[in-house]
Amino acid sequence: MKTFGGPVLFLDRSDINTDEIIPAKYLTEITKEDLKPYILEDLKLTGFDPNGEKTRNARVIISRANFGCGSSREHAPWVFEVNDITAVVAESFARIFRQNMFNCGMAAIELPKEKIDALFAFAGFADSSMAVDVEAQTLTIKGGGKEETFSFDISPFDKALVLAGGWVDYADQKY
């Protein structure tokens, strides 16, 4: 069984691009670990602090439409991975970012706008946390004494990638 989860970082904006997730000047790093301090450094979002406690503690990100657009850099999922953020839940993703997440064995979960709105209702609680169960295709958000569970769609291929731990192992065994 593959579950992801923990404290949530809410990023209330559409079209967050990979330049904002990890600026190009850090693309000269050649290990994933070296990217760690630069997570979301250039994100344009009022009140957001890339070095804040919320960013540091986060294990899941909830955001809006077209998350991860722009450059194909896999450094974006990697900077999440080395910061222990292994799932992003959003209304929609840019194709390359979405595939990069699954290729690394992490989850990029799409939910319709109403459900994303319902998740954002938890943004005000300091203790918001989420558990994502990829196999069961459900996620549960908790916070402020409340709890809600949603089911989500995932392509069988993407699910297989998560369960296999990523595309390299999967492809290596199969092709």
Binding site: F97, N103, V168
Partner: peptide, 8 residues
């Protein structure tokens, strides 16, 4: 594509 797709 990303680096993993490239690698494969």
């Amino acid at each position: 594509v990303g680096t993993t797709d490239l690698e494969v």
